[in-house]
C-alpha cells in the first residue's frame, strides 16, 4: 500500500502525534478522554480535544491508529504494521 506508507511520514512528523502513539504503546485501547487527559497531565500538551481528535484522524488515515466502536464507547488502538514498510525499504544494519 504505497498510498498508506506515504502518509506515515506526515503522520509521524508531528510531535503531538508521536506522543499519542507513545501513550497507546503504554496502554492500547483508550477513549478520547483518556488520551486527552494523558497528553495534558503527562506531556503538558495544551491542544483542545478537537485538535487531538484531528490528530487521531491523521493517524487513522495513515493506518497507525484504528477506532473501535464498542457499544456506546469508542476506543483507539495502535497499529504499527504500516511501519514495517519503512524497515523493509531501508533495512537497519545489524
Amino acid at each position: 500500500m504505497v498510498g498508506a506508507v506515504s502518509d506515515i511520514y506526515k503522520a509521524l512528523a508531528d510531535p503531538t502525534r508521536r506522543v499519542i502513539l507513545d501513550e497507546l504503546v503504554e496502554r492500547d485501547g483508550q477513549t478520547l478522554f483518556e488520551l486527552c487527559t494523558r497528553l495534558t497531565m503527562k506531556h503538558d500538551v495544551a491542544s483542545s480535544r478537537q485538535a487531538i481528535s484531528q490528530h487521531l484522524d491523521v493517524l487513522e488515515a495513515a493506518g497507525l491508529v484504528t477506532r473501535r466502536r464498542e457499544g456506546r464507547y469508542t476506543f483507539h488502538h495502535l497499529d504499527t504494521s504500516p511501519l514495517r514498510e519503512v524497515a523493509t525499504r531501508w533495512p537497519t544494519t545489524p
Partner: peptide, 23 residues
Amino acid sequence: FTQPPTTMGPVTTAVLDDTCGNL
C-alpha cells in the same frame, strides 16, 4: 470500566459506566 486505574502526576483516575447512561 472504560478506563482502568491510570496514574497521572499526583492523581489516579478510572472511569466506569454507571449503567444509567453515564460515565
